[in-house]
């Protein structure tokens, strides 16, 4: 049989979006609203409003970090649902170090140090999940669930009893030189971390497709037996890649803490780690696809808030979950159909 290559990814994503569009529209109809009117309001209110645009950039930057984290872990066949905890660990580390640095520390030192702290904290969590899996045989989803809950409890405790200043739910502000410049109007949420995140996605694209490293870790995920036969240490690869994955999620702190909030706050970034799963799936694990997916899902949720007078804002949250389910269902169906047509041809 001559193998005919068909690109299935756009087909899968397209099918999933049509499904989400259909379900969203029928819910809008059920509420007595015209779907065309609501969809248009969501889109136009985002595009025509500077505040909403910076909110999209801010949200998408966090989602790129957590989405890349989930996607990279899936490359080695690991399902990293602890991106949420890794992000929180990074947020804590960056906020604590950023506030502890002497006020005179130059930016060129303070910012990389804080980013390094965030990446190390996230990476430590990711690496231990990888190690538990390959050394102890513990399913990564179970250890991730436990670590997410544990980190949330530790963050709450650390905030309440150590970090939060007099009666607020906010820690001490980080020093000026550790803050990333914001984009657009002063005080806007969008900040320079957007470019760093884009750089991470480009770097990862290059690593995945152009280097021996990338080949090794993807082979580890797709055919571990082959990777072992070729002499690569799949256990070490898994732990290293899980560490890198956790570090990426931890780097979300660059956006949340260094870029915008400038402190650790109760519930900062909550839910954006889990949503990274949706982003990675919609992006079909391709780093640049993940960037696109992060932007689209951010438009959906910012648009949902902007159109909250027409439909409850929970609708757009529901649609994000529908997109996850639609993609994961469309995956095997489209693959089955395309292998059938390529066999026929």
């Amino acid at each position: 049989m001559k193998h005919k290559r068909i690109t299935t990814e756009p087909l899968i994503v397209g099918t999933a979006f049509l499904l989400a569009l259909a379900i969203g529209s029928s819910l809008m109809l059920a509420m007595g609203k015209s779907p065309a009117h609501v969809w248009w309001a969501m889109l136009s209110r985002v595009v025509s409003n500077d505040y909403n645009l910076t909110q999209v950039a801010y949200r998408a930057t966090t989602l790129v970090c957590t989405g890349l984290a989930v996607g990279l872990a899936m490359d080695v066949g690991m399902f990293n649902i602890a991106a949420e905890g890794q992000m929180t660990a990074g947020v804590l580390a960056a906020a604590v170090l950023g506030a502890a640095l002497p006020a005179g520390t130059p930016s060129a030192l303070a910012i990389p140090l804080c980013l390094l702290a965030a990446a190390s904290a996230g990476g430590a969590v990711g690496g231990s999940i990888g190690a538990l899996k390959v050394l102890r045989g513990a399913h990564e989803v179970i250890s991730s669930v436990m670590l997410n809950a544990l980190i949330a409890a530790v963050a709450l405790w650390a905030g309440n009893s150590l970090l939060f200043t007099n009666g607020t739910t906010r820690s001490e502000t980080i020093i000026n030189n550790a803050q990333l410049p914001c984009l657009g109007a002063p005080g806007s949420a969008a900040n320079a971390m957007a470019f760093i995140a884009l750089g991470l996605a480009l770097g990862l694209t290059w690593l995945r497709s152009r280097t021996a490293w990338g080949q090794t870790w993807r082979l580890t995920g797709q055919a571990p037996a082959v990777a072992r036969a070729l002499g690569s240490n799949t256990k070490r690869t898994t732990i290293l890649v899980m560490t890198a994955s956790g570090a990426l999620a931890g780097l979300a702190a660059g956006n949340l803490v260094l870029g915008h909030h400038h402190a650790f706050e109760e519930g900062l970034g909550r839910g954006l780690g889990l949503l990274g799963i949706a982003v990675a799936l919609v992006g079909q694990l391709e780093p640049l696809g993940i960037v696109a997916a992060a932007v689209v899902l951010s438009v959906l949720s910012v648009g949902g808030l902007a159109a909250a007078d027409l439909v409850p804002k929970e609708l757009s949250e529901m649609l994000q979950a529908v997109v996850i389910l639609a993609i994961v269902v469309a995956n095997p169906i489209v693959r089955r159909l395309t292998t059938r047509t390529s066999e026929a041809a």
């Binding site: 399902f79 889990l274 929970e314 994000q320 979950a321 389910l325 269902v329 169906i333």
Partner: peptide, 23 residues
Amino acid sequence: RFGADQVVVGIGLNLLALAGTRF
């Protein structure tokens, strides 16, 4: 029926239930 990944289906349903009950 559709052969989708069981873990991702579970996570997706959890997110759907969280948003769906609020909706």
